[in-house]
Design a protein around this nucleic acid. Structure first.
Lengths: 210, 210
DNA sequence: CATCGCATGGGACCAAGGTCCAATGGACGT
DNA sequence: ACGTCCATTGGACCTTGGTCCCATGCGATG
């Protein structure tokens, strides 16, 4: 696969901070894009390779905290490094608990920033890999019909075909057909693989009737 | 099951802080035990019900940070609420990233403390449930012989008996015997359940030879 | 050395999974 | 109304899984 250069986004309302961070991070061999506001960043299209966001807490308009919330709610999982002018422990605790990588108080030294960026980009790679895996699974999952999905939830409980048939009030024969299509459409050839796929995208097994 | 009363441990070198927290938390209907040092706490035997630890950062001898490290390394997952005299953001960030529930600066108000305790005890319950599940699985796992464990790792990849036989250079018949014993000893009656158990205790599937 | 646990398998047999081919009927859209 | 997708089912047939009983050989332990 092609190696994508990592990309760092900077959101800060202070032009001098943007300029300083841009030069500093560029000197570390990374691509940088700066934004003067959270809203400007939100309009920016998603990126492909590993990336992270350096975000000022306090800004006019949408604050850094609010931007984090918005990204979380839109399931954008870009790792965030917060920077702030005045230290505020409860705030730091809050954002870290919501998944931020670090919370740096200005002025911070370059090493702390680069350490945080390294960690953020590592995390970004992991997230993107997981995301790609899940997308692939969901793609296959979308090929299933309603009934097939239903049968899937029973199959991953380990129920026998005859038990599934009884639960759905259909013949065992029909279950076999659905089951076969599920295996084919999901591109697996064992129940074990199917169970693992289902776990990765959090498909809950149907309730069991022993 | 019997409902255990939640238990809160307090570790602080300042007697007046211990006394104050003890009275305060008791008034909330919780059991409290206080310790004057990290080492004293470490000698304390484990507890059964949900519990959490309120821990002073700065103490003579073993510090709160060090205690957190020790608990992590001994896989004790009791949720920790840190309290500290002087705010230190990097420190707060560090302990939160290591899993602490909160980081409160003295003086803190009672509500913040009780909120943190509630969250910590909720987390404790979840951890203990997971731990109990895993212990039960490991108990069964310990019943397996070397060979049976080996077969297990192949079974959960979804390999056919004949493929497993080829991989282990034994007859398909023998694989069936081992496999049967695995299912019996693990108390499952389907590969799907077996795969789920294996995931919960992080058993990696054997490499696949299609 | 006798016993026990473990790994190894053969024979026989049945249950369950999986796959052909073929068919019917309902729902939905063009 | 016609075609398409979907759910449903049967028959035939083969492969796999699972379970009896039985047997051998090896290493550890008493």
């Amino acid at each position: 696969m092609k190696k994508e250069t990592a990309r760092v986004f900077v959101v800060d309302d202070d032009p001098s901070v943007r300029k300083g961070l841009d030069r500093l991070i560029r000197s570390g061999g990374l691509l940088v894009e700066t934004f003067a506001s959270a809203d400007a960043f939100l309009e920016h299209p998603g990126t492909k390779g590993p990336s992270c966001l350096i975000l000022d807490i306090k800004m006019p308009g949408t604050t850094g905290i609010e931007l984090q919330e918005k990204l979380l709610s839109r399931e954008d999982t870009m790792p965030i490094i917060f920077i702030s002018g005045h230290g505020d422990i409860p705030l730091a605790v809050e954002v870290i608990k919501k998944g931020a990588i670090d919370f740096l108080s200005k002025p911070f030294n370059d090493k702390d920033l680069f350490d945080a960026i390294d960690e953020a980009l590592d995390k970004s790679k992991i997230i993107q890999t997981n995301r790609a895996d899940q997308d692939a699974i969901r793609f296959h999952l979308d090929l299933l019909t309603k009934r097939e999905s239903e049968v899937l939830t029973y199959v991953i409980t380990g129920m026998l075909n005859k038990q599934i048939a009884a639960a759905l009030n259909i013949s065992e024969k029909t279950v076999k057909v659905h089951r076969g299509r599920v295996m084919e459409k999901m591109s697996v050839d064992s129940v074990a693989e199917l169970v693992r796929l289902a776990q990765k995208i959090n498909i809950k097994p149907a309730k069991i009737h022993h």
